[in-house]
Design a protein around this nucleic acid. Structure first.
Lengths: 243, 243
DNA sequence: AAGTGGTCTAGACCACCGC
DNA sequence: CGGTGGTCTAGACCACTTG
């Protein structure tokens, strides 16, 4: 009997976690709302409170829920705080995080390039929206960004005036379109500034810039955004903790 | 009574963890050796097995110990695997990790510069050892590194012939000097190649390179190494997962 | 077979929150 | 005050490793 389970054994708490993640993905508990209490979930699934707790604690570490003693467990939201801490890695020479100020210059619909289609796992020439913007740090332009997102997930976004796009996009994706970014990976390289990039960022052409290419995924691990950021790193650096 | 504890309340498992970390720092269980079993530790500290387990699980996530079902709990070691996965973030354009091949060109004792003293938290002009090396990826020079370490922690290292220094330094630090790197942080920037760097890496002078400045700490959070790596990123990139 | 860590349960009490 | 998650305990059983 233990042999029968041996091969495809899966801990109960992981099964519970899978069920809860699925319900989150179905938007059963929209961002910011409370999940049932541990006791209620334990009764519903007919497991012990400890098993539910373990599942929820894992989900908290993955930023899928927030838990607060005395209050409850809540579906994660995309606060500005979180964007700044989880996703924004540029800090100034003193190691301080600065809030970037963004100014979008264009927001248009287009057919996906081969690279966009690959990064977003879309068919060739599928419809995407491209956003271009400049972000200032401490009052000076420091980041030039090109962002691509699938049109299908963001209906009507292409007709927004670019100057109305908010500073923290992930919060905007979530509240306006129900698209929740929960995970991302970045490819960082050094690149020489092109003529236009140099002009926008106020550096000499061919100056070294930091190129950060990011792919962002939702809770179902589907890509929802692809962006390339070109950053001045003369007064800031990209910070990474290895632990 | 609950007020009396309220202010400086600290969970039991954290106190146990602190005690265990201290014993690890005192080298009571050298890297690779087994700690006592959960049951033995629980009896020793007169707490439940579950409390010890929680402390050990936290320590495992911090890479201080390794735990294996059926075998036991072991003080962490610096395998080449770990160096590659936890500390080495350059991967090739296909996303594959390659084992770098290192060739040290110099290894000398010197007085710390102001920057070195600050990074290593040493007094001005304290004795440091500087190692310079080139690392090849896929057969071509791709990384130029300058490494600074406090002489006090590595007696006699300065008299090693540089060509005898091994590829994975952290494993070497641990086995030869009992210096265990457990945590590090990196500052990443774009920089223009100097004439000498360009020559070593086989690129044009002023080419954009990725500058990775790393500060590595031991279990007591004391800095034990400072290094700056200049990397070609035309066939590789610095990969970072955000979760 | 014996010993390890991993899971699961049940129950007690504590710290925290909001009413 | 009642309800939440956080801690701590004790005990049972399971999966894995070693001999």
């Amino acid at each position: 009997m233990s042999e029968a389970r041996g091969l495809n054994y899966r801990p109960l708490y992981e099964q519970i976690k899978t069920l809860l993640v699925r319900r989150l993905g179905n938007n059963e508990w929209p961002p910011g709302t409370a999940l049932p209490s541990e006791i209620a979930l334990a009764q519903e699934y007919d497991v012990s409170q400890g098993t539910v707790r373990k599942a929820l604690n894992v989900m908290e570490k993955e930023h899928l829920v927030e838990r607060r003693q005395g209050r409850g467990t809540f579906a994660a939201r995309h606060s500005q705080q979180r964007s700044l801490f989880q996703f924004f890695h540029l800090v100034n020479d003193n190691g301080e995080r600065e809030l970037p100020v963004s100014r979008a210059t264009s927001c248009r619909q287009s057919k996906a390039s081969a690279a966009e289609a690959r990064a977003l796992e879309l068919p060739e020439r599928a419809s995407v929206i491209r956003i271009e913007r400049v972000r200032e740090l401490n009052g000076t332009p420091a980041i030039h960004e090109r962002i691509s997102i699938p049109s299908s997930l963001f209906p009507g976004l292409a007709s927004w005036p670019p100057e109305n796009l908010p500073n923290t996009l992930y919060e905007f994706y979530e509240t306006e379109y129900g698209v929740m970014v929960v995970h991302a990976s970045e490819k960082v390289r050094a690149a020489a500034a092109s003529a236009t990039e140099a002009k926008v960022l106020g550096v000499a052409p061919a100056s070294p810039l930091l190129s950060v290419e990011r792919r962002a995924l939702n809770i179902r691990n589907e890509p929802v955004e692809w962006r390339r950021s070109l950053c001045r790193t003369d007064q800031h650096y990209y910070f990474n903790e290895l632990d």
